[in-house]
Amino acid sequence: MAVGIAAFGRYAPEDGPAPDEDALTMALEAVRALGALPGRVDCLALASMDLPGRRGVQAGLLAGALGLGEVFVCEHTTSARAGTEALLAQWGLLSARGGVGLTVEVAPGHGAAALLLAEGGGLAAIDGFASVCAEDPGLELGVPDYVAACYTRALTQAARCCMDRLGTGPEAYRHLVLNPPVPRLGPVAARAVGCSAQQTVTVAAVPLLGLTQVLPGAAPGERVLLLAYGSGSACDAISLTVGRGARTTGREV
């Protein structure tokens, strides 16, 4: 049975995080919003551009607070696409070995999103993905035209590759989720990918926050194209199909 999203939780405080909140406490809030966890979670993946601790396994706090003892923990950091990196790694692991996984992504200044992955998870299925990576030195200098060119190139390449593999086109997707390095690049990138005004474009600080923003409003059968960019010029394009229950609840019904 295919591994899919069985539940999701989202924590995005309207006024931004309080001074006593950090990536780990927000991750816990997102998991709390997800609802009661199953009796056993085999894999816990924590993704964030920054984590508060200097060393050690930061996700240990999550595992401890959630009461997960025998769990494989991994962390994905220093990238704006850490969330999709974690999601794909966990999806691959669970597809190979079975079990239940929890992927949590935090945008330190914005909030956190949690996805529970399990065999037969019916809120959203992962149809397939494609990733590209290029060496584009100097992105940190922030030269607008250069950043825009690198972003658009990586995004369109990953999106086309993903759609080619699945035999779909831009018109197959009702929702597009983006995390552009600058918000104004969102519409530009959507046009470059081939999306029209009929499709909703969600721009989020990190990809999984965007996905959990889209899922409650998506109807069963609609497709979501999640395009995450970061780590220099790496881009993940993930195609998802929304299942029953996502519109009304964060949990599979």
């Binding site: 950090d22 406490t25 816990l28 706090l61 607070a65």
Partner: peptide
């Protein structure tokens, strides 16, 4: 809810605080 309390001896201390019960 679990929140960051303070840092001492180089270790960030986390613990619970209480927040208003929300709809969600």
């Amino acid at each position: 809810v679990v929140r960051r309390l303070y840092e001492e001896d180089g270790v960030v201390r986390y613990g619970f605080k209480f927040a208003p019960q929300g709809v969600g």
